[in-house]
């Protein structure tokens, strides 16, 4: 039982990361029906940007103080990720907006490879694992036999806060309304005077910012990162987005948590760590086959 609870907690924390990345997939898909395959790499770049801030910009005297370190690291990650995502949107995807859907997908794969290689070749030491600071130190918390690292707790709180903030933004703000309108019907939205290009840029930026935070979280939790985290992280987050119902924001978060828990549980009880990545793919395939609209998605006509 204790072990079960422990895995549940692990799964939830893991799922928070997936959920944050999944939001980017789901928002972009909702708006322009593109699987932004490079989004996983935006997450990875964010992690490295945060690390660079820590190791190369912050003076050593400050590195012990989480109240200074954390905001700066996250800020650096967000700035770099958003910049990269916007460049990719502007020069990679936008020229292909009218092209068949295969074209941007291949561009996305190209961007993905490019970003991975860029980091691997030019970030010092990134050819293998690089260690990431824990930032938040201190003993683990014990709660009824379940161990929770301080970092994990903090991450969970941040992730939930961001998700709530995003929901509120999209539900209530003017811009959020414009985003929803664009996702329903971009052409009509444009006729109604919405600058859809701006909305698309904003969507990419928001997604990238969330992914950047997820990247820093990933680093803090595993205390190391490498240039490959984007691929698996991306595919799993995409799975989470599909699981929740792609295009659906609450769904993406829910999907993230469900996937995290499933992964933690199957690793513990079913398959062992050699197959931990298989679990995600099996979930993805099962969802698409049995409930392609996802947990919260509306019924989508799928005909043979």
């Amino acid at each position: 039982m204790q072990q079960f609870l422990q895995q549940l907690v692990n799964g939830v924390v893991l799922g928070a990361t997936y959920g944050l990345i999944a939001l980017g997939y789901t928002m972009v898909y909702g708006i322009i029906q593109l699987i932004n395959f490079a989004h996983g790499e935006i997450f990875m770049v964010g992690a490295f940007a945060g690390l660079a801030m820590y190791s190369y910009v912050l003076p050593e005297s400050m590195q012990g103080n989480p109240f200074i370190v954390l905001p700066l690291v996250i800020l650096a990650a967000v700035i770099v990720s958003v910049t990269v995502a916007l460049l990719v949107e502007r020069y990679g995807y936008r020229p292909l907006r009218r092209a068949p859907r295969l074209a941007p997908l291949i561009t996305a794969i190209g961007v993905s490879i490019f970003l991975q290689e860029l980091v691997r070749l030019f970030y010092p030491g990134a050819r293998s694992q690089v260690s990431f600071p824990r930032i938040i130190e201190g003993p683990n918390l014990e709660l009824g036999g379940v161990t929770i690292a301080r970092t994990s707790l903090f991450l969970l709180v941040v992730a939930l806060a961001l998700m709530v903030a995003l929901q509120t933004f999209i539900r209530t703000s003017r811009t959020g309304k414009a985003m929803r309108a664009t996702s329903q019907d971009a052409d009509t939205a444009r006729l109604m005077g919405i600058n859809t290009d701006r909305i698309i840029v904003l969507t990419f930026a928001l997604g990238a910012a969330l992914a950047a935070v997820a990247g820093v979280m990933q680093g803090m939790r595993f205390v190391s990162i490498d240039f490959r985290i984007g691929f698996l992280g991306g595919v799993k987050a995409f799975t989470a987005a599909v699981l929740g119902g792609i295009g659906n924001i609450t769904g993406a978060m829910l999907g993230g948590f469900v996937l995290g828990i499933v992964e933690a549980m199957t690793t513990q009880y079913l398959l062992g760590s050699a197959y931990k990545d298989v679990a995600a793919f099996v979930v993805l395939i099962a969802v698409l086959v049995f409930r392609p609209q996802g947990l919260l998605g509306e019924r989508v006509a799928v005909r043979a």
């Binding site: 699987i35 595919v235 599909v242 990545d277 793919f281 698409l288 799928v302 043979a304």
Partner: peptide
């Protein structure tokens, strides 16, 4: 998977490819 449309198929086949390798 072939009942799915478009991009979903891409991701599912990617998943199957990874499963094969694992």
């Amino acid at each position: 998977t072939l009942r799915l449309r478009g991009d979903y198929l891409a991701i599912v086949t990617l998943g199957f490819g990874e499963i094969f390798r694992i």
